[in-house]
Amino acid sequence: MLESLAEKRRVLIVLGVFVALGVVTPFLDLFMQSLVTEILVFGILAMSLDLLLGFTGLASLGHAAYFGVASYTTAIIMTKEDWTWTFAAFQWADSLGLGLFYIFIFALVVAMAFAAFFGFLAIRAVGVYFLMITLSLAMVVWGLAYRWSAVTEGDNGIIVLGRPSLFGISLESEIPFFYFTLTVFLICLGLMFMFVRSPFGKTLVGIREREERMQMLGYNIWLHKYLAFIIAGVFSGVAGVMWTLFNLFVSPPDIELITSAEALFMVALGGPATLIGPVIGSAIIRSLQQFISIYVERWPLILGAIYIITIMLGRLYGVEGILGLFGKFRKPAAPPDAPEG
């Protein structure tokens, strides 16, 4: 399945890093454990955006929408006791040890429905119009979370009391939940890796590179983009479910524009179309946020400065993300007119 030796080695390195992470994390303190878990959750979000931005060439500035829809759905089906049938179904599934499956299926179907609807509106637009529409649609979701207080509790957010157990294993404490997150993360990584290497994924790269040619070859551009949009939305939903289960609280600030922009920045920082780069971006941004927040409370101000400095430096030295930096060190003698990936 893997084409070259170099690729095999890269996959082994990545797997090795995550195995090492799985071994080391239980020995860290609670703060670091929850930081690692948070990095993995946002890693899923950033990777899902990479499917759109890196592989399909669609810069979506509203990726927090599906994240938000899934995280709110999770919180709602776990807490809304007056919605009798969903709550009863959740209780029943939870008593069988399948509460998590119920949550995942329910929330991902809702996220998929939203992605299908929003994608239908957005995919026709190109370039900056696509960007503006995805942003506006994400603001619609934010508006629902903020104003539709009968369901979403508005500004107060929803507090979730406890995580459901998995086959009778309690996920309440940090370490089991970390392993659960790592498992979900690796499943998502594997699925997305297979996805981008499939003929479908290759077609998406072709569309990114030369849309007219792919159209000439008889590919249905709209359908390919639309399906990629939905798939990215579903993976973003996975991140949303994990966020609610991790944080046990969702509120409108979790899903506003800053989250979408952060996801976009994670991809740009780590290196687009690399799948693992966005995870590195997530690690950097989330660690910075946690450590800087200890000393100063002005996180958005610093985040804005980081955006500007990183992008300006990247343009100045012609580097595409941190993984691009690696490539630059390794092949200093690359011909300057080589086509970029």
């Binding site: 370039g127 524009l257 922009a261 958005p300 804005g304 400065a305 955006y307 500007i308 343009r315």
Partner: peptide
Amino acid sequence: RLGQDTLSQVLVTIGFAFILQD
């Protein structure tokens, strides 16, 4: 200094939006 790269423009302008807002 950014040229015509939409993604960079978006991230830089949103960076300024965060700075002005915060």
